[in-house]
Each structure stands twice: as C-alpha cells, then as structure tokens.
C-alpha cells in the first residue's frame, strides 16, 4: 500500500543521515550519477522551457528573437481575455476534462473490482490483455475508429436502423448534445483497461488475512468489496486523483480537432484548438504562450486545491 511504502522510505532516509555521508556516497556512485542525470533532464526539459514564457509579455517575432522583440506587458493577456471564443473554449475544455476525469475513475475502479472477482485465471488474463490494448493505439487512430462507427453508414446507425427500427441515420456529429459524451466514450474505450492495471496491482497488495477474517464473519462477496477492497484502495485513488486533476485542462486534442465541425463548434472547440487557431495559425506566438500560461496556472490552482482538501480530510496527498 502507498502509505506503507512512504513510511518505509522515510525511515531509510533517517538511517542514511546517521552514517558518514561521504563514505555512503562513495559506495553508491551509480545511484548518484543516475539521480544527477535525472535532475539535469528535469532542468532541461521542465524548467528551461519555462523561460519561453517571457514571450507572452512581448510581441514576439521569430526574426527578432527574445532579445529584440517589443515588450508589451499584459497586452496579450488582455487580448486573450477580451476574446469570446477563448471563454467558449475554456468552458468546453473544463467540461470535457471533468467528464473525462469522472469517467476515468469510475470505469477504471469498477473494471478492476469486477476483474478481480473473476476466479478463472485464464479468462482474467485474457480480458485484461484485450482491455488495455486500445491504450497503445494513437489518438488519431481512435478518432478514425470513432468517426467510422458513428458515421451515417457506420455500425451504430446500421444497428439502430435494422434492429431498433430507426428510419433515418442519426448524424452524431451534428448534434451538440452528443459531442462531450462521444469524447468521454472514446476515452473510456481507450484507457479503461490501462487505468485499471494500477488498481489491480494495489488490490493484490491487500492483506489476505483481512478477507479471511471477513469470511469467518460471514461477509458476502459484495460486502468484502465494499468494506475491504475499496477502503484499502482509498490512498491509491486519492494520489491518482491529485495527479490527474492537474491534467483536467488537457482534455485531448485529436478528437476535438478532427471530429469538430462548424455545426457543433460551440461545444467542440477546446483550448488547444483555440491556441492553434489564434496563436500558431496567426503567427501570434505570444498569444498562444499567454493561453498556455493561463492553462498552467489553472492546473496549478486545481492541484493545490485538491491537495489542500486532501490534507483537511486527512487523506493521502502529494505535498
């Protein structure tokens, strides 16, 4: 369990402090070098790019570069916040992000619990393997699959017309009310199996004596899941929730970009597409950067809020 691991780690740290640090260091050159490499990697790929943020406060022109582009203060942010499409895109991103997050957790946990109850080892492995395979498809492939199955001559419409007796095919991509759910469905289809793996792993770490004790007390299968498995998963769930909450505004790109069209653009346009339209396509890299900063700030706030809540309720937290 996560809590146990963290505890054991910190006691190991204490042990290191008591001995001579240099002697300790000499004995583990590999560990030190690899962590240094990781640190350098982190600085280069996570911290140096943040320097690019200064372009948000400039009227950045690639020909002039960072140093000679004109400084414009918060003008680009002002332009961003005056744009109606931006708010629309923000709303859609948030909505799809939250829907995806909820579905992500509910389906992955439910799937892990159900799979865990399967007693035939072969069937369990088989289902698990099949279920996580879509994870390895790229989003563009998934987009094409979704497009095909929901097309007017796709499998869903064929089914509706031949079995349910619909007269006309439904144009799924022309109804605003469907779009968010189509995105959610695609996410569930692609990621549920993969997301369930970590829960399945956590379930195997639960002390079997708990179940044995429950058996003695005459608990039913369902009661064991409800009173033992789920509470034992709670720390894992909280940590994953906190990590994922920062990704709420990364609600995908390919699905919305490819499947969106003029009829449903009010609900399909998301922030990343907005950045593409108003930033890169207009060569207004500064505006794009400003929108990117906005996204990061929101993500940071969400993570902090989540962490603070976790602290209040006494749950597992990130920092």
């Amino acid at each position: 369990m996560a809590r146990n691991t963290i505890n054991s780690l910190s006691s190991a740290d204490l042990g290191v402090k008591k001995t001579n640090k240099w002697a300790e260091a000499k004995r583990q050159p590999f560990l030190l070098i690899s962590s240094a490499l990781l640190l350098i990697y982190g600085i280069i790929f996570y911290y140096v790019p943040v320097l690019g943020w200064i372009t948000a406060f400039q009227d950045y022109k690639p020909a002039k570069g960072f140093l000679k582009s004109q400084w414009v203060g918060f003008a680009k942010f002002q332009k961003l916040f005056e744009n109606k499409t931006f708010y629309l895109a923000f709303r859609n991103t948030l909505a799809m992000g939250v829907i995806n997050l909820v579905f992500h957790f509910v389906t992955a946990i439910a799937f892990a619990l159900i799979l865990n109850e399967v007693r035939v080892m072969f069937a369990k492995k088989f289902v698990q393997t099949i279920s996580y395979m879509p994870h390895f498809l790229s989003w563009i492939i998934v987009t094409a699959i979704v497009r095909d199955i929901l097309a007017s001559d796709g499998i869903v419409n064929e089914f509706l017309m031949n079995v349910c007796g619909n007269k006309m095919p439904i144009d799924f991509f022309a109804v605003k009310g469907y779009f968010w759910w189509i995105v959610a469905f695609a996410n569930v289809w692609k990621e549920t199996g993969w997301n369930a793996i970590i829960y399945l792993a956590a379930i195997t770490a639960i002390d079997p004596s708990l179940y044995e004790a429950a058996d003695m007390d005459g608990a039913s299968r369902f009661q064991k899941v409800w009173y033992i498995t789920l509470p034992s998963l709670r720390p894992t769930i909280m940590i994953l929730l906190l990590i994922n909450i920062g990704n709420v505004l990364n609600a995908g790109f390919e699905l919305q970009y490819i499947l969106g069209n003029d009829v449903i653009s009010d609900v399909s346009k998301i922030l990343d597409v907005f950045i593409l339209d108003w930033g890169i396509s207009q060569f207004d890299f500064s505006l794009g950067t400003a929108a990117g900063i906005f996204k990061s700030v929101i993500a940071l706030i969400l993570v902090c809020l989540g962490n603070w809540t976790a602290k209040r309720t006494g749950d597992e937290r990130l920092f």
Binding site: T85, D262, S265, D284
Partner: peptide
C-alpha cells in the same frame, strides 16, 4: 491578413462568426 492589425483581427473574427452561424442560418 493576420490578427496583428485591427482589420486582420476583424477578418479572423468574421470568419469564425460565419463558420459558426451560416449552418444555423441555413438549417
């Protein structure tokens, strides 16, 4: 035209507006 001029910004917004509204108008 790009959004770096007032006319260009209007042009981009007009395009967005027409994309969103013309289907509604026809339907």
């Amino acid at each position: 035209m790009k959004t770096d001029t007032k006319g260009g910004e209007a042009w981009t917004k007009m395009g967005e507006c027409k994309h969103a509204w013309l289907p509604k108008v026809v339907m």
